[in-house]
Design a protein around this nucleic acid. Sequence first.
DNA 1: CCAATGTTTCGGCGCGCACCGAAACATTGG
DNA 2: CCAATGTTTCGGTGCGCGCCGAAACATTGG
Lengths: 239, 239
Amino acid sequence: MATEARFAEIAALAGDPARAAMLHALMDGRALTATELARAARVTAQTASSHLARLTSAGLLRVEKQGRHRYHCLAYSGVAQMIESIMRVASHLEIQRPPPATGPRDQALRAARTCYDHLAGRLGVALMDALIRRECVELSHDAGLLTDRGVALFGVMGLDVASVTASRGRTARVPRVLLRPCLDWSERRPHLAGALGAALCAHSFEQGWIRRLEDSRAVTVTPAGWRAFGDALGIRPPA
Amino acid sequence: MATEARFAEIAALAGDPARAAMLHALMDGRALTATELARAARVTAQTASSHLARLTSAGLLRVEKQGRHRYHCLAYSGVAQMIESIMRVASHLEIQRPPPATGPRDQALRAARTCYDHLAGRLGVALMDALIRRECVELSHDAGLLTDRGVALFGVMGLDVASVTASRGRTARVPRVLLRPCLDWSERRPHLAGALGAALCAHSFEQGWIRRLEDSRAVTVTPAGWRAFGDALGIRPPA
DNA sequence: CCAATGTTTCGGCGCGCACCGAAACATTGG
DNA sequence: CCAATGTTTCGGTGCGCGCCGAAACATTGG
């Protein structure tokens, strides 16, 4: 059975510490250069190059050459979902509490970050909690739906759910299946993923509600962002 | 960051061909003995024992000793979902058509099989197709919901959706989020997974609609099964 | 055209581990 | 208690591959 061999090949690729660090670094959905990825994985450029070549030829990464740089990113969302699912198993029942909080960099990541194309960390979980409390979304263990109240609320926030739906060629009707829960590795609770999660994240960047920190998946919420999240969902900045 | 090391550890465990074969064999949700798994992985019992010890201590497998046998199974559904997601990447865009069809064993697997706790293969995909065509379920790329028509139809089939819901502590209200799509590796199209998928699979076994083949994840549909699937969903046996 | 920078190729070292044979250990049935 | 069967432990071999230094190749700016 050839699929089994391919399975082992893919998993083995993700199973090397250096490559795992690279994949992890690419989980924010951005494209990074070989040198940046080498630094993330703490290996030399040569070693990184070899790893990247293997990851690319296996179809896990996509590369775009631009001048003397080569930008690498995850080939498609399925790869990100695979990484998520492995991460979920990896962080399952680690008996460490409270999390060690290793420096300001890690603190920022735990507060708010991107997870491929959507928001995670305390911010992401808070958004999900607020959406559920207000009956805007309904959640099960591995799926979720958006209620008509949710459609209205996102409209107030300036996010047209119909346009998210439209790209998937469907007529407007509620409730809609546009989301899925994604277990947050730092909070151990679900945050908002799927088409709606991606749309909310993109919209938040566009509106200037959140901004990326340098060289990190971490994001900060701007004053305008706290206003928006506060008005719509009652989310306040931490004391 | 300790989670990254754990990530690599988990992925590396899945990345060995022998261990991958074992995990694959356990994807039908049953518990298998060390010897059976050794045979599935085509290694000696000693080698298998070592692999199983590592998989177990890493928390991927759970073992139950019963006499001189030791039954191994996936530790929890998260592991199965991880395996699924890797399999999905592994079988993504393989340019082989039509699939080689290596022997009757493989044929049976492609026709109908269990995928951890739900149904897959041509049967699984046909069920999903029929449910969508009859507007019993609504599907997006990574989530799905059950409509009120769906609740009624499952009722006709003798499956009380409320009881599936009840175990998750929710009041009856439709539509419900009880399902998720799971991309079938042999058909490359989604079949029914999630709580509802598991319930339908279990119900089908109980009613004698399907039966497991010896030593395989493959299942066959009984005459009573074809009647039930035909009456409720218009699914006919292949010519 | 040349120096600077980013990236890949080549060659060689060394560790880790998958594998098996042999033997010990565990459990059951007679 | 003994033989049969299932499983694990131990010891040793060999291959794969992750790693880096050095050098080649590619691209840009001056």
